[in-house]
Amino acid sequence: MRVFRFIIALFLLHAPCEAAGPNGKTSCRFLGLEGIEAPPPLLNVSPDGVEVACTVPIATLSPDTACFAKGEAMAFVAASDRKLVATATIPAGVTSAILVFIPAPKPAQVPWKVLVIDDSAKTLPDAGAFVANLYNQEVRFVLGASKIMLKAGTSHSLPRPEPRDEFNMAPVVFQFQQKQDKWATASESMLRFVPGARYLMFAYVDPASGRPRIMTCKDSYRPPPPPPP
């Protein structure tokens, strides 16, 4: 799991000094990576003791769950023994988020790290894509006519790609850097980009095979607008 040492900075996302949503509450959806065992059933506990059950599905987004943070920290404990499993840092002003659970490097007192993605049109544009590089080297990818280089531990949001064919399909290609001047294609496909849907894409190392891997998750959910001030 040493690859995940390179992505801790990606999780912090400019840690805030105040709670994210009203009363420290944030609308959360959970996601785990293919090829990695999911975390155990979790609990998020509010400051006044309310327990919220949370499940992290693999390769698909969970239903929306209202979770609580204390300051900037949103803690999750195992439902079985109440031991701390992960702490997510929720940026100030974020009222809806996607939480991606990734194993922490061993040995670690807290076994999981959490990538917090702002579930908004700015980060996840309609008919577009969000790409995160969890690999320990650079990754380059093609989305339509866009050619992007991502350093380790960084992410990028892209609008609806151009050009597309008559079926709204556009090419998506990922290459992993293996040596200084050597690249290997890990994924090459055509995806359909239409309004009302968006893609989350993650580049990482499969822990079983040790080989680079791409996971793509399609999201057709739209979070409700925040309540008026």
Rank of each mutant, 00 (worst) to 15 (best):
Glu138Ala: 06
Pro111Met: 08
Ala79Asp: 08
Ala121Phe: 13
Asp126Gly: 04
Val50Leu: 12
Val52Gln: 13
Phe101Asp: 08
Ala79His: 10
Val131Arg: 01
Ser120Cys: 13
Cys28His: 03
Pro47Ala: 13
Lys25Ser: 14
Leu99Ile: 01
Ala78Thr: 14
Ala127Gly: 11
Cys67His: 09
Gly49Ala: 10
Met74Arg: 11
Val56Lys: 00
Val139Arg: 05
Val131Ser: 02
Cys28Leu: 13
Lys25Asp: 10
Pro39Ile: 05
Ala121Met: 14
Phe130Ser: 07
Pro41Met: 04
Leu61Met: 13
Asp48Pro: 04
Leu31Asp: 11
Gly24Leu: 03
Ala108Trp: 02
Ile90Glu: 11
Ser120Gln: 02
Ala88Glu: 03
Cys54Thr: 12
Asp118Cys: 08
Ile90Cys: 09
Cys28Glu: 03
Pro41Phe: 05
Pro107Met: 08
Phe68Thr: 07
Phe76Thr: 06
Arg29Gln: 13
Ser62Tyr: 03
Ala121His: 11
Ala75Val: 01
Leu31Arg: 04
Pro91His: 03
Arg29Cys: 10
Thr60Phe: 00
Pro111Gly: 07
Gly24His: 02
Gln137His: 06
Leu31Ser: 10
Gly93Leu: 01
Asp48Val: 09
Ala78Ile: 01
Thr89Lys: 03
Val85Thr: 11
Ile36Tyr: 08
Thr60Gln: 09
Lys25Val: 15
Asn136Arg: 12
Gly71Pro: 11
Gly93Ile: 00
Ala132His: 08
Leu134Tyr: 06
Glu72Gly: 04
Val110Asp: 00
Asp126Glu: 07
Ala53Lys: 15
Leu31Ile: 09
Val100Gln: 08
Ala92Phe: 04
Cys67Ser: 12
Lys122Arg: 15
Ala88Val: 07
Pro91Ile: 02
Ala104Lys: 04
Ile90Arg: 03
Pro63Phe: 02
Ala92Asn: 02
Ala69Leu: 04
Ala86Ser: 11
Val50Gln: 13
Glu72Ser: 14
Pro41Lys: 03
Leu115Gly: 00
Ala53Pro: 12
Ala69Met: 08
Asp64Ala: 10
Ala127Glu: 09
Val77Tyr: 02
Gly21Ile: 07
